[in-house]
Design a protein around this nucleic acid. Structure first.
Lengths: 175, 175, 175, 175
DNA sequence: ACCTTCGGGACTGCCCGTTACT
DNA sequence: AGTAACGGGCAGTCCCGAAGGT
C-alpha cells in the first residue's frame, strides 16, 4: 500500500480510537510509522489530510449505497429504501465512528464540509427522482441520518433487538 | 446578570459566530468583558465551561418541549408530536447552531456527553409511554434529530417552503 | 487555636503531604478551612507565610535542642553532643520532612533564608564555646546536618539498625 | 557542540545565576539561543530537561571522584578520603551552586531523585568496601555532604581559612 | 476578622509547518 | 520520497494579590 494511503488509514485509526482531539500530525505519523516530515510531504497541511479522510469516507458511502441500490428491486422509493439498507449495514460507513469524528473535524473547519455538501445534494436529487411522496422519503432519510449521528455520539435510541423492527417499520413506510 | 452567566453567554456567542475551533478561554473572556482570571475563578477548567454550556442547552430543551407538550392535545403520540413541534420552532434550541457546536465540543471530549445521555434516555421513556407503535414514534423522533444535526452541519435537506410540508407529513404519521 | 496558627499548620501539612510545589495560598486556605481572603488578612504575601513557617521551624529547633542541652552532662563538646542527640530524636524537627521542604521553598526565594542564617551563626558560636577542638566539633555537626538533609531527600546512608551505631560513634568522638 | 548540550548548559547557567525559581523553558531557550520549540523537541517536558541536568551532575561527580581516587594512595578509607578531597576541590561539582539548585528542583518533583539515589547507593557500597570502621567513614562522608548542602544554602560553617584545618582534621580521622 | 470575586501575569506543553539534508 | 531539527505561536492552567463587601 502506498505511504499516502497508510497515512490516511493511520489518521482514521487515531480518530476512531482516541477522538478528534487527538488527531495531530505527529500522532498520525507515529501510527503510520512515518516521520512527520513524511506526512507533510504528502499533505501540505493538516486540512489537506482531513480532506483526504473526508474524500475516502464519501467514496465508501457511494460504494456501499451503490451496492445496495443494485440489490434493491426497482419501484417507488428505491433510493430511500437503499438509504435504509445502507444505514443498517453493520459493516457500512454508517456504523463507523470515524464518520462522527470527521463531522467534528469538519465542524472545526467548516470549509472541509464543502465536498460533503455536494454529495449530500446528489443524494437529495436521487431521493426526489423516485419518491412519489418526497416528504415521506425525506422523513425516512432524515431518520436514518439521525440514527447515524446518534450512534456517533454514543446515543442509542434503539438497541439491537428493536433495530430490526425499526428497519422493517421504515421499509413498510416506503411501499 | 451574574458574571458566571455572562461568561456562559459569551461562550455560546463565540461558538455560534466563530465555530467550536475558536472557543478558547481567552476569547470567551474577551467577549464576556472579563479577565481570564475571572473566567478561571468560575470554571476551574475549560471542560467545566463546556459542561455549563451543555447544562444550559439541556435546560432550554426541557423548557421549550415542556411548553409545546402543554399546548399539544392529549392522545396517542403526544410526546412524538411535541418533538416535531419543538424541532420546527424557529426560536427553539433545535435551530440554534450552538447545539451543533456543542456536539462537536463533546465529540472532542466524550465525557462531556454523559449528562446529555441521561436526558436523552428520559426522552426515549416519554416516547415509549404514549406511542401505540413505538417504532413509528422512534422513526419520527430520529428524523427530527437528523434534521437538527443537518442544520447544524449546514446541510439542508429541505428549504423553508417544503419544511412546512415535511412538518405536516410528520404529524400526519402520528395520528 | 488562633486562625493564624491554623494557617501555618495547614501550610506545613501541605508541604509535608504534597511537596513544596503544591504550597499555594488557596491550598493552604482550603486545608486550614479558611478562605483565601482570610489567609491574605494574616499574611500580606506568600513570602510572609513562608517566613512564619521558617520562624516556627526555628523555634522548634531551639526548643528541642535546649531540652537536650539541659539533659546533657556538662563538659567539653556539650553543644556538639546536644546536636547529635537532637538529630537522632525521632520526634525532633530534624526528622520532619517539613524541614527539607522549607529548604526548597527558601532556595526559591533566597531572602527567606536570612533569619535561618542568623540562628545558624548562633549555633556555630555555641559549638565554638565549648569545643576543645573546634574542627572536631564542626565535623560532627556537619555530619548531623548532612544526615538531616539526606533524610529530607529520601537518601538513607544508614538504616535504622546502624543509625544507633553511628550515633554512638559520633558521641565517642566527642569525649 | 550539539544543540541538546547547549540547552542543558544554558539551563545550568540559569540556575546558577538566577536560582531555581527562574528556571523556565523560555529562559533556558533564550540563554541557549534556541527557540522554545527547539527545546521542546529535545526535551518533551521540563522534567526531562531537569533529568538531563541531574544526569550531567552525576557524571561530573563520578569523573572528579574517580580522578581523586586514582591520586589517593591505596589503603584503608581510600574512598572516604576521596570523598574529602572531592568535596574540597574548589572546581569540583561540590562547589558548584548548581548542585543545590538541582536539589531544590528535585525536592519539587521527588521522582527526579530516583537516578540520584541509585548512584548514592553505589557510593555507600564503595565506602563500605574499604572502611575498617564503617561508622567512622560514614560520619566523615555525611560531614562532607553536610558541608556541600550548607554551601548550597549559603550557610558557611567554616570560612576559607579554617576549611583547610577541617580538611586535615577529617583526613586525620581516616588513618 | 474574614469572605467572594476578579485582574493580570507567567509558565508549561502542544502542535503546525519550514528548512536543510539525504 | 523521506527525515531530523527547529521556529514560533498560542491555548490551558495556575496562582498571587487587590478590591470591596459583611
Amino acid at each position: 500500500m502506498s505511504t499516502r494511503e497508510k497515512i490516511v488509514d493511520a489518521a482514521m485509526t487515531v480518530v476512531r480510537e482516541q477522538g478528534v482531539g487527538r488527531l495531530t500530525l505527529d500522532e498520525a505519523a507515529k501510527v503510520a510509522n512515518v516521520s512527520k516530515g513524511g506526512v507533510l510531504y504528502h499533505f501540505k497541511t493538516k486540512d489537506d489530510l482531513v480532506r483526504a479522510m473526508v474524500a475516502r469516507l464519501i467514496d465508501r458511502c457511494e460504494e456501499v449505497s451503490q451496492h445496495y441500490y443494485n440489490l434493491e428491486p426497482d419501484g417507488p422509493y428505491r433510493w430511500a429504501r437503499t438509504v435504509v439498507r445502507t444505514c443498517f449495514d453493520p459493516n457500512g460507513p454508517a456504523s463507523d465512528p470515524v464518520g462522527g469524528a470527521l463531522m467534528a473535524a469538519m465542524a472545526i473547519n467548516p470549509d472541509l464540509m464543502v465536498p460533503f455538501r455536494t454529495v449530500y445534494d446528489r443524494w437529495i436529487e436521487r431521493l426526489k427522482s423516485d419518491s412519489p411522496d418526497f416528504e415521506r422519503g425525506a422523513i425516512i432519510a432524515m431518520a436514518m441520518d439521525g440514527m447515524c449521528f446518534e450512534r456517533m455520539l454514543g446515543l442509542n435510541l434503539v438497541n439491537e433487538e428493536v433495530a430490526e423492527r425499526v428497519k422493517l417499520a421504515a421499509l413498510a413506510l416506503l411501499t
